[in-house]
Design a protein around this nucleic acid. Sequence first.
DNA 1: CGACGTATTGATTTAAATCAATGTAGGTGG
DNA 2: CCACCTACATTGATTTAAATCAATACGTCG
Lengths: 261, 261
Amino acid sequence: MTIRTALTLDAEDRAGPTGVGTAAESGPERNPATCADCPGREACLPAALPYSERGNHTFFLRQRIRRGHLLYRAGDAFSAICTVRSGCFKSQVTGDDGSERMTGIHLCGEVLGTDGIATGKYTSDLVALEDSDVCPIPFCALKQLSAEFPSVQQWFHKVLGRQIATNTGMIALLGARRADERLAAFLLDLSRRFAACGFSPREFDLPVTHRDIGSHLGLCSETTSRAFCRLQRGGLIRVRKQRVALVDIAGLKKSAGGKPC
Amino acid sequence: MTIRTALTLDAEDRAGPTGVGTAAESGPERNPATCADCPGREACLPAALPYSERGNHTFFLRQRIRRGHLLYRAGDAFSAICTVRSGCFKSQVTGDDGSERMTGIHLCGEVLGTDGIATGKYTSDLVALEDSDVCPIPFCALKQLSAEFPSVQQWFHKVLGRQIATNTGMIALLGARRADERLAAFLLDLSRRFAACGFSPREFDLPVTHRDIGSHLGLCSETTSRAFCRLQRGGLIRVRKQRVALVDIAGLKKSAGGKPC
DNA sequence: CGACGTATTGATTTAAATCAATGTAGGTGG
DNA sequence: CCACCTACATTGATTTAAATCAATACGTCG
């Protein structure tokens, strides 16, 4: 896999200037964002700006990240959060022995990079699962706009709050002891979030491998596979290739919530 | 166990007014905070206020929560975040069948209630593990101060960022498959956070039962107990009653990071 | 086509859950 | 102060679920 991070391109990789927020011309893979046709524009930062301000900010430089490439890497200096304009990402941490553990999936419309706020360094690798576009929002600009416009502040609080709520839910999910419960809860979480960004909550493509899901849920890939089989045999889901249909959502919820202790 | 939430006291439980932020007189269990002798004052919100402003805000009403009582409950309307002035808390969610799953521990100096920001409702129960004091910070006041003082904004971003980082770390931790790894990682996380609030990172009292730890880590209480034994037998920790000493922190880290997949 | 990563399925081993019994500390009330 | 109760911790025996090992099939991409 090619390793290249997009927020911190090496000099030879860039045609345009480095600093997000100062760009006048676009480098390779970077284009001025056209919010007008962005499906997520209603929920994104510009919607929180007064109409008169929306054209004044040139820092929304859309950036294309190709499948398998990194948006940033654990340890990189934190400079910006990013909204996912299209595609999706996974975050992962790498153990001392080189093994990778997925820590989250980030769908279109969601915001990346908040894990860097606390320390000023990102804490995980961010990998594009398909060719994806992100719109980086430099943190310094965000702070200024936040102070200036209450609606931007509110937007940012919502973003961080949602992140916390999602993470908290994931922590509760991972307290489940049986593989089926964890998988069911994981699928329901994905379903809810797919719905939130305009996709069907009942049917979607799994953007990651069984191995990744397993590393996320504390299972090996074979167990993940068998858990899928069991849920399917129980009539709760239907699986064909990458595509998963949640047939009996109520049943899944019962599975996911069953016997926490 | 007595169930009573503190942020939303019922009318007959209160002597003073409800709304945090408007209080002039203190009700039972509520006293004006005296930040001067608070061990966490350097890291708390008032330190981010200009000196001239620090006396102007009367909304820092310290509140005492007795052991076993609830600060708030899942579903309660979100009104404030709280810093833990003394003591500690656990957060937990309750399944449909009434079983409880711990979702986190919150130490002195940390901030509670951020799980309510996204939706306007708290998503978990917050239980005091010992007699504890909290200082509620009404969210509306925080928004105003944030907009007015960049240093307050920065403080709040740090608070939320730390919460996200802690949660992300916990999610990575829970991806471990063996009981010993999860427990080792859990203890190291606690150690780091005890250190952050001025306690020893090498020795501390576990504020929760094995059952709670198990529900958090996806283990049953017996397995938790045996994992403690194994870590002790391996010379990594020493346990006596509630007190845990981390003897070999490097070894614990190796245990915790070992074989993620 | 051939190579690689992935998914699936089966056989076996290993770890954790469960069941059960005992021990212990703390709290209550006589 | 002690007897009693309760919740928790610990330990062992057994069952069950998951990890591991292994083989095969499937898909995609070069």
